[in-house]
Simulated assay, not measured.
Amino acid sequence: MTTTGAGPGTSESSAALTAWLASLVHNHDYASLAELRRPRVHREPHFRALWYSPTETQREVYGQVAFLFAVYHQGRSKPAFGYGSLGEAARRIGSGTGRGSDNPGAARLVDRIVSSRRIPWRHLQHAVARLRACDQQPPSWARLVDDLNLWHDRKARVAYEWGVAFHMPPARTPAERPTSSTAAACLQKDSTT
């Protein structure tokens, strides 16, 4: 798990935003985090988040991800840089009885997110709040910025990739994988019935 907020393939500007946001939590600057959680009131922390945006068209994404970060970190004393895409993070939503695609609420939420033509800010806020409530790691904040900046890029297929990451079955451990002898036994048993 990364401790800098920058992962492979993340942009410098998204990593810099994540590092600054993490410094607010690390330095216990709860006033700035509270300001970021006020989406309609724009004060210095909000404008500072926008400074990290390399273009004017990307400012909304930087401001909104700063808001989501502040929502997740409300009352927390350690920064969580998160890992994976939003689809991977949504697999962590749920309880012991059902997580990810086995959790009907998480599945409906992801379906709403990935079927949206516009960036679904309200549903993303709900996903972050659910991860916080389940005490699960958020998505990589830097990657979230980069993914959302590509939301309308048909070649990037961000929504599709999030859906695939959410619905993919968990990787099997070597002990769970069928061996050739057990597979042959299953085939032999099927042919005798």
Rank of each mutant, 00 (worst) to 15 (best):
R130G: 08
Q58G: 15
A6T: 11
S77W: 08
P120V: 02
T10G: 01
H42R: 15
W20Y: 13
M168V: 12
G98S: 02
D102G: 09
N103V: 02
T173F: 12
D135N: 14
F47G: 06
T179L: 04
D102K: 10
V25R: 03
T173K: 12
E176R: 14
L68D: 02
P104N: 06
C134M: 00
L150Q: 12
V164Y: 13
T18P: 00
A89W: 02
L144F: 07
A106R: 06
P139F: 00
D153A: 11
A133E: 11
P120H: 02
S180G: 13
S101Y: 14
R154C: 11
P104S: 06
R143G: 11
M168H: 10
Q64L: 12
Q74W: 08
A15P: 06
A183P: 00
G63M: 05
G84D: 01
Q188P: 02
S53W: 06
D190H: 15
P170Q: 09
Q58E: 15
S181Q: 13
H42Q: 15
L86F: 08
S53V: 06
P139A: 02
A159W: 05
L148R: 00
R112H: 13
A183N: 03
S85H: 01
R38G: 13
R76C: 12
D111Y: 08
G5T: 02
L36Y: 06
I119W: 06
R112I: 04
P79V: 00
P104G: 04
L68V: 03
L109I: 00
T3V: 08
A142N: 02
W141M: 04
P39D: 09
R130M: 14
S11H: 06
V25D: 03
R122Q: 12
G98V: 01
T4Q: 09
A34S: 14
S115F: 05
A89P: 05
Y30R: 13
A159R: 08
R122F: 09
R122K: 13
E12G: 14
E35G: 10
R118E: 14
T55N: 10
T55V: 05
I119M: 10
Q74T: 10
R118S: 14
R177N: 09
L148F: 05
D147L: 00
D102V: 01
A22W: 04
D29P: 05
A66S: 09
R38T: 14
S116F: 10
A127M: 07
A175L: 13
R130S: 11
G7K: 02
G5D: 03
F81V: 00
Y72M: 01
E161F: 13
R59I: 02
P8K: 11
W51T: 15
P178N: 06
H28A: 15
W51P: 04
A175Q: 12
T2R: 07
T173V: 09
Y83F: 12
D111R: 10
R38P: 08
W121P: 04
L109P: 03
L33W: 04
Y83L: 11
I119Q: 10
D111L: 09
N27S: 14
P79Q: 03
T4V: 07
A133F: 11
T55H: 10
A171T: 10
S53H: 07
H46E: 08
R59D: 01
L144M: 10
D29K: 08
R37Y: 07
A159L: 04
V128W: 00
A34C: 10
G100S: 03
H42K: 15
Q136D: 08
G105A: 12
A80H: 06
A80G: 00
H73F: 04
S32N: 10
A19F: 00
A184I: 05
T10S: 05
